[in-house]
Amino acid sequence: MTRVRDLMSPDVQVVAETDSLTAAARLVRAHDVGSLPVCGQDGRLVGVLSQADLARHDDAAHVGVVVGEISEP
């Protein structure tokens, strides 16, 4: 049986809920991840930001830039 720990990313990158979408997109690209845990001011998990979230909640011009950055090798 495969366990979650066998597939998970051990070096977890997180963003603060006050960080910009640009900063989050850079982390996604730099670490080649599909989502980022989002922490509140107290350091507790408050949500998860996915690549789809980045694309869905941004203007069309910026979505192209974000997707391009994420897709670069």
Score class of each variant (00 low, 15 high):
residue 72 E to M: 10
residue 26 R to S: 06
residue 48 V to R: 15
residue 63 V to I: 06
residue 18 T to K: 13
residue 60 A to E: 07
residue 67 V to E: 00
residue 33 V to N: 02
residue 12 V to Q: 07
residue 19 D to L: 02
residue 26 R to Y: 07
residue 58 D to N: 14
residue 49 L to M: 10
residue 36 L to D: 03
residue 71 S to I: 07
residue 57 H to M: 10
residue 58 D to H: 08
residue 34 G to E: 04
residue 44 R to E: 14
residue 28 V to M: 08
residue 15 V to I: 15
residue 29 R to Y: 11
residue 59 D to C: 08
residue 60 A to K: 13
residue 21 L to G: 03
residue 53 D to N: 06
residue 44 R to D: 15
residue 60 A to F: 09
residue 4 V to Y: 09
residue 62 H to W: 12
residue 69 E to H: 10
residue 17 E to V: 13
residue 44 R to G: 11
residue 43 G to Q: 09
residue 36 L to I: 08
residue 10 P to F: 05
residue 23 A to Q: 10
residue 34 G to Y: 02
residue 53 D to G: 04
residue 23 A to M: 11
residue 18 T to S: 12
residue 72 E to I: 06
residue 70 I to K: 01
residue 55 A to K: 03
residue 23 A to Y: 09
residue 49 L to R: 02
residue 26 R to C: 06
residue 60 A to P: 07
residue 39 C to P: 06
residue 38 V to E: 06
residue 6 D to L: 03
residue 67 V to T: 07
residue 73 P to R: 15
residue 53 D to Y: 02
residue 40 G to V: 03
residue 7 L to D: 06
residue 64 G to Y: 01
residue 70 I to C: 00
residue 12 V to E: 05
residue 16 A to T: 12
residue 15 V to E: 03
residue 39 C to E: 12
residue 56 R to F: 07
residue 17 E to G: 12
residue 21 L to V: 03
residue 25 A to C: 14
residue 12 V to P: 01
residue 11 D to F: 08
residue 4 V to Q: 04
residue 32 D to N: 14
residue 58 D to F: 01
residue 22 T to L: 04
residue 25 A to N: 04
residue 43 G to E: 09
residue 69 E to L: 11
residue 38 V to K: 08
residue 50 S to Y: 01
residue 28 V to Y: 00
residue 51 Q to C: 03
residue 3 R to V: 12
residue 47 G to L: 08
residue 23 A to K: 11
residue 72 E to H: 12
residue 63 V to D: 00
residue 24 A to T: 01
residue 18 T to C: 08
residue 9 S to A: 15
residue 68 G to D: 02
residue 28 V to P: 00
residue 5 R to D: 15
residue 8 M to D: 03
residue 56 R to Q: 12
residue 2 T to Q: 09
residue 69 E to D: 14
residue 73 P to M: 14
residue 13 Q to T: 14
residue 46 V to N: 05
residue 39 C to V: 13
residue 58 D to R: 08
residue 33 V to L: 06
